[in-house]
């Protein structure tokens, strides 16, 4: 079991009370900054008119009542021994940056003025190392349970952070990249690469039986005809299969490198790269759309970018 797996189920922040009770001045700061004009947060009469006992705090503000505040943030002090231990482990492995990715809140009751909110935090899981758009890192998922002055649960929050190694700033000068390997062009497939240079994705079509085929070849596998022309592809398709290439590394490519088989809407498949997506986000069946990669003056290749389902139509 890795040191990270050991953290599953561990309490990293023991029950800790927020510094201030739920109060109107802090609600006012929050509502003003959010542009939230709901009167139940500031006007006691308006809150009573909705059947509430008085002013309530915005549900989304629950977490704010237990935030550590300026001094603790600047000192970098952690809220518990478990959190300190986990931070030390993450720092040792170079995951120095942090970004929140998910918050799943269930609110059991509205908070009213005078409530004292406490929180405790337990690790649910820590992911294996993953490559993300921000850098390589681990997703740390915890569950935060918020309780009131009577120990009753007021809200439960599943919380996910990405702890990551920041990529080198883009201002850093890079070695000029090696050119991509040349495709093996011959009399059968030259038309396909020539069309690509004009940013046209074409599919070889049998003149005899109209069957589409790819990769290009001299003879129709369906009817045997040597006569053919080319059809224009729509550029839409889906991921039929894929691999993520880590090794061996070729200097022309960025790694991890996603190599995919994309099935076009026309039915033929081609081997290509996916862009604009992290390897762990790729799914079989994911809809994709064509983009052109002008790799160098002599080489243009089709690549594909995932598109949302609704953009398909």
């Amino acid at each position: 079991m890795s040191a990270y797996e050991d953290f599953a189920g561990r309490e990293i922040v023991p029950l800790r009370e927020g510094p201030d009770p739920v109060n109107v001045p802090m609600i006012r700061h929050w509502a003003e900054a959010m542009g939230d004009r709901n009167p139940v947060y500031l006007d006691d009469a308006a809150a009573r008119a909705t059947g509430r006992p008085g002013i309530v705090a915005p549900a989304s503000m629950t977490q704010a009542w237990t935030m550590r505040g300026y001094a603790a943030t600047v000192e970098g002090s952690s809220a518990g021994a478990g959190a300190r231990e986990l931070n030390a482990l993450l720092e040792k492995d170079g995951y120095t940056s942090v970004v929140a990715t998910d918050s799943e809140f269930e609110f059991h009751r509205e908070l009213v003025v005078g409530d004292r909110v406490s929180v405790r935090e337990v690790v649910e899981s820590i992911s294996p190392e993953k490559a993300t758009a921000l850098g390589v890192g681990r997703f740390v998922t915890t569950v935060r349970t918020y309780t009131d002055q009577d120990g009753e649960v007021v809200a439960v929050q599943r919380w996910r952070l990405l702890r990551f190694r920041p990529k080198a700033p883009s201002t850093e000068k890079r070695e000029p990249k090696a050119p991509r390997p040349r495709p093996a062009i011959n009399r059968d497939n030259a038309f396909w690469f020539e069309a690509a240079r004009e940013h046209r994705l074409v599919i070889q079509r049998c003149s005899g039986c109209a069957t589409l085929r790819h990769p290009p070849g001299p003879c129709c596998p369906h009817c045997g005809s040597f006569e053919w022309d080319a059809a224009e592809a729509s550029g839409r398709g889906h991921v039929y299969s894929f691999v993520v290439n880590h090794h061996p590394r070729h200097p022309a490519f960025e790694y991890p490198l996603i190599v995919a088989v994309v099935e076009l809407d026309e039915g033929t498949r081609l081997i290509t790269n996916l862009v604009g997506v992290a390897p762990e986000e790729v799914e079989i069946g994911m809809p994709v759309a064509l983009e052109w990669l002008d790799a160098d003056p002599d080489l243009t290749l089709p690549v594909f970018r995932p598109v949302a389902q609704e953009e398909q139509d």
């Binding site: 709901n38 909705t50 549900a59 989304s60 970004v99 998910d102 918050s103 269930e106």
Partner: peptide
């Protein structure tokens, strides 16, 4: 204003 929020579950994408 009479509505009571009972859940907010979000995932962040681009900043």
């Amino acid at each position: 204003p009479s509505a009571v929020v009972t859940a907010i579950k979000i995932r962040l994408g681009v900043p």
